[in-house]
Write a protein that binds this DNA or RNA. Structure first.
Length: 112
DNA sequence: TCCTTGACGGAGA
DNA sequence: ATCTCCGCCAAGG
């Protein structure tokens, strides 16, 4: 299986992360149907054009931390984009219990 | 073909 | 909280 084959699936899943919420690499992999492909989620994001509409900044690692080096421009950019959506950092990480995306939330109104 | 490298994750110490 | 050590698996040398 080639990256191009599941890359689209990962990106489509990431597209669904609501503004103001985050998901981990492993979570995306799981939701997309490839439980052990956390690393590939990152690989898929790496090749995105800089003007992409994919909300890559809403993907953090399992500890709620940004994957880039803290002194990189990418780290800075991702942090700013998250804060712009109302997601704030505490000790260099976001609170997953507070911001983690839960797909089930979309089914709060069964009769619609 | 073998070895190393990751925008990772989880279990231990 | 910090730091290993593994498991993971396609890509690139």
């Amino acid at each position: 299986m080639k990256q191009s084959e599941y890359q689209a699936i990962f990106l489509a899943t990431i597209m669904q992360i609501p503004k103001g919420q985050v998901a981990s690499y492993g979570q995306i992999a799981k939701l997309a149907g490839f439980p052990s492909f956390a690393r590939h989620v990152g690989r898929s994001l790496k090749v995105l054009p800089k003007d992409t509409k994919v909300p890559w900044h809403r993907v953090v690692n399992a500890q709620g931390k940004i994957a880039f080096d803290q002194d990189s421009i990418q780290y800075q950019t991702q942090k700013e984009r998250l804060e712009r959506e109302g997601i704030y950092f505490m000790n260099g990480k976001v609170s997953l219990s507070k911001y983690r995306w839960n797909p089930e939330d979309y089914y709060d109104f069964p009769n619609t």
